[in-house]
Design a protein around this nucleic acid. Structure first.
Lengths: 195, 195
DNA sequence: GTCTATAAGGGGATAGAC
DNA sequence: GTCTATCCCCTTATAGAC
């Protein structure tokens, strides 16, 4: 794996982000050194600085890209006729999108405290936008008499917390298929906010 | 703050654990140095090793004590007549117990990956015992026709994940009292597992 | 664009004086 | 029980050769 010389600007950048993603997710940002990342990529540590100004930017960019992809993917979903359909769509989307990106998800909520204050604020803004999408669904359903939640903000956070729990235990090839998981969680979410 | 000489074996030990607890929770285990901990306590780094064989044991002991206190406190609750009462009691207990120990809770689920494999297994065993308590309630209620969950194990994890979400946003003195929070979450949990 | 070499500093943990 | 001093290794980031 250990390379010697040569120019690979087009592929080294993505490989650095890939390596950083996996290592940060496995060991934590603070516990991973630039040498480790370089080692995985097959370059020397100094070469990393052709692609990132510093370690912090590497983390921030991973988190920012993840949140922007999440929002973009969500905004491309088909509009739903009613709040019940929209909620079901949200549950399915959330589970499936996050299940495909376990490392990004893990980093996005474990490494918030390792962001500089400015970077933290930026990520929080994106996270808030996603939460607001769910809150809008709950409020619309409440208005139409489909849902009954005492506090839309708390219900939003409760639903997302519940769904995020999937990532801590689900493993592909386990006892349950993704369809079954989605169905089980949808059943609980639906009942939890039901009128 | 900076002390010079003297013997304080009876108070230094607890102060070290206290300092480590706060620092680990705020900055993360990997990002905190033994020198920082010593600085907060007011001793030199070398003195810490009279109380802990190494940094890892400091983390493990904090997590182990927390889990053992959680289990002991839960086991002292009054027995309930039916599963509905037991579930309500669990929800109230979980929220209130964890709300009083935000740092311990944060560490207990953020720093699992920084434990050695042996220590990790030990903490997991304790966590499993706590989850089993909730799962027993759900299974009993299912049998009595009070609850309807498709999968008791998943429902257990879903409920705990939802409740743990409280710790990420609740601040004393905020918009809602602890009673209100407990009531709102109880309402959602009750409905989510209802028959 | 990558390398080697290095600056400047912090890390965990230990030894021996007091 | 705590201190000072130290070992030895690792850290992020930069400089300059190729």
């Amino acid at each position: 794996m250990a390379r010697t010389q040569g120019s690979h600007s087009d592929i080294t950048g993505p490989r650095i982000r890939e390596a950083a993603l996996g290592l940060f997710a496995r060991h934590g940002y603070a516990a991973v050194s630039m040498r480790q990342i370089a080692g995985e990529v097959g370059v020397q540590a100094g070469a990393l600085y052709n692609y990132t100004p510093d370690k912090q930017s590497l983390l921030f960019r991973l988190m920012q890209d993840h949140m922007q992809e999440l929002l973009a993917a969500y905004e491309e979903l088909e509009p739903q006729a009613d709040a019940l359909g929209a909620l079901r769509q949200f549950v399915g989307f959330h589970i499936r999108f996050h299940m495909q990106r376990p490392d990004e998800v893990f980093i996005a909520y474990m490494e918030l405290r390792n962001l500089t204050p400015e970077n933290f604020a930026e990520i929080e803004k994106l996270r808030r936008r996603y939460e607001d999408a769910l809150q809008s669904i709950l409020l619309a359903g409440q208005k139409d008499g489909l849902f009954s939640v005492q506090d839309a903000k708390i219900a939003t956070l409760a639903v997302i917390a519940m769904l995020n729990g999937v990532m801590t235990w689900y493993r592909a090839g386990g006892r349950l298929s993704l369809d079954e998981v989605e169905q089980i969680y949808w059943d609980m979410v639906r009942k939890a906010v039901a009128a």
